[in-house]
Amino acid sequence: MPLDPDIAAFLRSLQQRDALEPGETPVTRARARLRALTIDQLDQATEPEAAEAASTVLAGSVPARVYRPQATTPAPTVVYLHGGGWIAGDLDTHDVHARTLCRDLDAVVVSVDYRLAPEHPFPAALEDAYTALTWVARHVEAFGGDPARLAVGGDSAGATLSAVCAQQAHAGGLSLAAQLLVYPSTDMAGAYPSRTENGEGYLLTTTELHWFFEQYLGVSRSDPASAAFGGDPRVAPLRGKDLTGLAPAVVATAEYDPLRDEGDAYAEALRRSGVRVEHRRFDGLVHGFYGMDHISPAAGEATAWIHTALKRLLG
């Protein structure tokens, strides 16, 4: 279907810069751009309220922010991993994402501020993510959470980390109630039509996508080491040898997203492995729609579907 008109208008309004500002690097520009898209564009008066949001440190070294719902009974707990191509994003850029999850699910949300590349390349982000997940699992009742309803989830790069964490949790004997994967990258080394079809003009370009991969892995795509990374299931969860027994999943993809096809492929691979999957491709939307409720009613409807599906898995 055609690109959502509200999203199209938003994309037209973005001022694209071809040259770096004095003193700016590609990494600092990417970080500033994400903050502009997620913080500067928001009407602060419309931010969803959480009963409480407090900073903490998990396992002694991983910063996080904990959001607690109004409900006083033991609640589901979601360990949330933000997007940003593994090089951008923080607790503030994804504050509204966490607040909305907390509100819609009546869930405790633990938003994780994992280390970023290129200063901290792979596997630093994954190590922080899994450390946070296992630490929360051991202390979930202290957060007011229900041990039987623990989930991991995220968007974009955070969804990739979440998919890998779900695989590692299963291998390590940690039972999760659900995993939330919003437009994940699941097969870095793969070749998919959506990377060509949606390679330009839809917020995330294929060129940017490849650059993010390089910053995260610390190697050029032309380097032979890149192929080795590409086959590593800790980088490409679709390459996991056995997906049976993984936590039920909500997988959301977007029609106009370079990552669309590999996200769809991962949902299908999970389903073929006997995993319960709630999967939907959102036509007319782009990578980054999650969190664009204030821009597009269609994005808001997509977010509502995602949260309803996750709530269903969490009981």
Rank of each mutant, 00 (worst) to 15 (best):
G201Y: 02
D223H: 00
D257Q: 09
T134E: 09
P237R: 01
A54L: 12
S226C: 14
Y256V: 11
Y216E: 11
T134A: 09
G145C: 08
L20H: 04
Y216S: 05
A247W: 01
T77Q: 06
E47S: 08
A137Y: 08
V275D: 04
A51Q: 10
A191V: 15
V275G: 02
T303V: 12
H307M: 10
S296F: 05
V62S: 08
R272Q: 15
A169S: 07
P237G: 04
V112C: 10
A125I: 13
R281L: 11
G218Y: 00
V277N: 03
A159S: 11
P297R: 04
F229C: 07
A225C: 04
V136L: 09
P123D: 05
L58I: 12
Q44G: 07
G218W: 01
L81K: 03
V140H: 01
A132E: 12
P297I: 07
L126T: 06
R29E: 12
W135T: 13
A117E: 12
A177E: 13
A302P: 13
V57H: 06
T56G: 08
D18V: 04
D43G: 04
E255H: 10
W86V: 10
H294W: 08
R115A: 06
L126F: 01
T206W: 02
R234C: 10
H294Y: 10
Y216D: 04
S222N: 13
G284V: 07
Y80H: 15
A252Y: 04
A64I: 10
V164P: 13
L20K: 12
D18G: 14
S61F: 09
A51S: 12
D146N: 15
S156Q: 07
G84E: 11
G240A: 15
T56C: 14
H210R: 14
A32W: 00
E200D: 15
R280S: 07
